[in-house]
Design a protein around this nucleic acid. Sequence first.
DNA 1: TCCACATGGTAAA
DNA 2: TTACCCTGTGGAC
Length: 337
Amino acid sequence: MPEGHSVHRIARQFARHFVGDPVRVSSPQGRFADGAALIDGRTMTDSKAVGKQMFLEFDDALWLRVHLGIYGAWDFSGSITQDATQRSAGGRMGQTNQRGTDPDAPDARTTVVGEYEASLSSIGAPRRTRLRMAEAEKESALDDAALAAFPPEPVGQVRVRLLTDRAVADLRGPTACEVLDAAGVQRVIDALGPDPLVDDADAGEERMLARIRGRRVPIGLLLMDQSVVSGIGNVYRAEILFRARLDPHVTGAALPDDVIRDLWRDWRYLLGVGVETGQMLTMDGLDEEGQRAALRNRADRHWVYKREGLPCRICRTNIALEIAAGRKLYWCPSCQS
DNA sequence: TCCACATGGTAAA
DNA sequence: TTACCCTGTGGAC
């Protein structure tokens, strides 16, 4: 799934394109028919993300909680201008692999970016077309999409469809999808560690510190634990630890407080970059050529993630890989020791 | 063309 | 610890 940055971007899209409108809610796949009936026809009143969880509020304080897991995806369609479609197809959407397997693709497993926001209410004659980047990239698909009726037929196993007069969002393959009342939402949020985009910077720092300090668990596992800190996934985990030159196996108890505080601050920084760019950019401090290479080639984008057996960019030691709690953990045995 | 794998959490065993 | 959610990709063939 997208790590925390993408979930915040999706929540933002709902805030801009759905909040304030009555929503028809259905489950074309059928597996969410009961839940859909609970909120069908209500107006969406809020949209927010905490870590990798997203919450959409409807009238009468009913909330839809969604967690995408690895396979989950939202596809947005709606009324946009020709201009925006061309821009997205030829510009920053030039990457492939929008869905599923490529954490470095812009907005992996999601579609809509901020550029659409202005175009939705301006410039040119609105036309009905797909917003989905993967479709927009393919010329034939673009032509087909431009001619397609709104709303498009659901494709594949669509667990939930949210439909307004101007936009539609299809959800596939989520790990979690349920309707909660306000107390239920609060219980979920209370079980989560701090999110730099939700919690006050200092309070969040103290919360994360309190949840790591004294723990006899490797920091490489603690950073992935959503009750310790929210939104970090396997990519950010590996990269944050390298940036801190920290051995993933060191326990929380062995870490000085200021090192833990620096981890929070770096996550806060990286999440901000991720939400603004839609990409997991973790190698700042590159010279111009390095930046160009990173944008050109996904393999040049990270310090250690998916670089096992390749020389460390700093010390040339081979990047190591091990399975930790069932997930791949990458690190430099020399720099991070 | 086919198959293993992937940014993850949950629930069952 | 394992299966599952259920899709898309990349590499093997």
